[in-house]
Amino acid sequence: MHAADFRFLVVRRAAAAAVALVAALAGCTGAPDPPDQQSPTPNGASVNATATASAAPAFASGLDKYSRDLRAGGATAVVIQMKSRVGEWSSAEGVRNLETNDPVQLTDQTHVGDITMTMVAVSVMKLVEEGEIQLDDPIQEYLPEFESIIKPPGPVTIRSLLSHRSGMPHYWETPNDIGNRRFTHQERLSFAAAVRWGRGAGSLYNYSNTNYSALALLVEKLRGQDIGTVILADNVKPLGLQGTLMTGSEPGPQNLIHGYTRTEGGELVDNALAPFHSGSPDTGLISTVPELNAYFAALQKGKLVTPQSLAEMHHPKYEQFGLGLVRHYDPCSNNDYYGHVGVVRGYAALALISADGSRQIAMAVARAPKPDLIGFDDPQALEMARTAVEALNQAC
């Protein structure tokens, strides 16, 4: 298995771990406004914005321990912000990069990986709202070239692409060495064309980033703009976000957190702005922890799509992945948390919000510089999801 293959498996396993965290707690009401522009958190400091230091929210100690443990294990940066009715808490620990050792700040930008998919899904839903497409139409109806690039076994609906139920192979499974350069959406699809399609296409969940390469081609054709520009227009500019952009945009961010890995020979590799992510509809986004919280709060409140579109994104109800959103069980309200997880070389990120909008958390980690992990079990990503859900549950 390729070193990056664990990304989608981790999401699935993390969801199962989160669902197991059941507690008999009261329901929550009320929804916070999306956070305003945040002031930087001093290096090494944890800040509770709504309570005195002697009355920190119950969830703060667990998040603080999580951050300290990661730093002790070699993570170069850990940034967290949680907002809830019972209090707010944020922390920025570590350094922005290992060359300058500048202290990391709460508002520093970071790679957020697969969280990019949520914004692509919003752009697709806007096309649905405008009557340009329908979710249960085959993508071939709007994108005939799809057939010649990937050679699907039959019609592939837009809904199945959004929900990872198309059966399309993951482009990482290609027998070719992908390497680290910029790829077009067509190239990513062509990589997957060399791999056999999964059984049960159109019904069985099978996480594959290639789905979003196809969706990017669809959006670009109908909008006449590249996917990064469409994402900005549909998701970023309406909310006035300043630190969220697609990689490949110039000039590059100045306050970017650098995530590192090491080769088997021990050489340190800086993965910041890796060409592979440039313009990618599945891993290409850069954002900040406060802006991730602002974004998912706005999405959950219906500020980006209609209530009907949001309901579609939340379904199917009893599946872990909806349309561009990952679901985690919320025992506080017997409902769900919605958001996404993103793991790419050197980085991990997460954003979750309760269905009623009363609790939300965003996290970003520049992971300990080690060789890429291989296999199903990525303990750091599992622990991130588990820690986030536990904190949200404690804020009921």
Rank of each mutant, 00 (worst) to 15 (best):
V10F: 01
A15G: 13
A15Y: 00
A24T: 09
L25C: 10
L25R: 14
G27I: 04
D33Q: 15
S39I: 13
A45C: 08
A56C: 12
P57R: 14
F59P: 00
S67W: 01
L70R: 04
T76E: 10
V78L: 14
V78Q: 07
S84K: 06
G94P: 01
V95Y: 09
T100F: 09
D108V: 08
V112G: 00
T116K: 03
V120E: 01
S123F: 03
S123I: 05
M125C: 06
K126V: 04
D137M: 08
D137G: 05
P138T: 11
P138F: 08
I139Q: 00
Q140C: 09
P144W: 06
F146E: 01
S148I: 13
I149V: 15
I149G: 00
G154F: 08
I158G: 01
L162D: 02
S163N: 15
R165Q: 14
M168Y: 08
H170I: 07
Y171G: 00
Y171L: 10
Y171K: 00
T184S: 15
A193C: 08
W197P: 02
R199C: 06
A201R: 10
S203D: 13
L204V: 15
L218N: 02
R223E: 13
D226I: 05
I231L: 15
L241M: 15
L245M: 12
P251Y: 11
P251I: 08
I257D: 01
G259C: 07
R262L: 11
G266M: 10
T283K: 02
S287W: 04
L310I: 09
A311Q: 15
Y318M: 11
S333V: 05
Y337G: 03
V343A: 10
S354E: 04
A364F: 03
E383S: 13
T387M: 10
